[in-house]
Design a binder for these strands. Structure first.
Lengths: 116, 116
DNA sequence: AAAATAGTTCGACGAACGTAGAACTGTCCA
DNA sequence: TGGACAGTTCTACGTTCGTCGAACTATTTT
């Protein structure tokens, strides 16, 4: 098995995607994935939004994102790499991912400003 | 009282908006609101996505949308009119509402095609 | 073969969600 | 004044969600 199962492009459901992106922790994850090419699950544990969450919880969030069609997971030796399904999401819901990413980023920036 | 309370533009939260739009019934409601200027709650009861739902349930959904900052409710005699907060949403999360509306519409169209 | 590493699955728990009916509030009309 | 009408609030219900720890699987390293 090379890649974990996710919905086909045409089966990606809007409500499911919205639900997957309606959680601060997952939003943070997606935002991080947009910056880099690929990340392994361990890296995601260091994210601000995911800090302190148990392995099982992070795994659960990744599953929600994968089953909604937001990310793709593939094997690479003893670790798994996750990546955004950018092209697929853009094809199915043009502009949605970009808008969400811009929004998420502006909120993260605002939160950082308040902190300091 | 002229208008029911909702969050200020700068207090609109992305995760809350995403959550508000992560329900098929509410998605349908928002899609309908994008077409017309204003609608009263009764009209929303005739929507495909809201058909058969109790008054109290519809009222609940409208509250979720309002508290997330997606819609605005104002009094007009014995009925209440709801409207999209288009400008506010566009200011806070540029492109998000449009992308969601386009996506919702394409899904509704696809569903209608299958039905016939 | 054994230990270490990376992640999943399972069972559980409290909180929140979507739904509904009944009772309530406020507005208009006769 | 009394209905009729339009929505809201309250209470309740079953379901789903986010979280966790513990047990499990699979791969790599020693």
């Amino acid at each position: 098995m090379r890649e974990l199962p996710g919905p086909a492009v045409e089966d990606i459901d809007l409500a499911s995607v919205m639900h997957a992106l309606a959680d601060p922790s997952r939003l943070q994850t997606v935002s991080a994935l947009a910056d880099t090419s690929d990340l392994c699950c361990a890296d995601l544990g260091d994210l601000a939004g995911s800090q302190g969450l148990a392995k099982s919880t992070r795994s659960h969030h990744l599953r929600v994102l994968r089953e909604a069609g937001v990310i793709r997971t593939r094997y690479d030796g003893q670790r798994k790499l996750v990546a955004l399904r950018r092209e697929d999401l853009d094809a199915r819901f043009p502009g949605l991912l970009d808008a969400v990413l811009v929004g998420a980023r502006s909120e993260i920036a605002a939160a950082a400003t308040v902190d300091e």
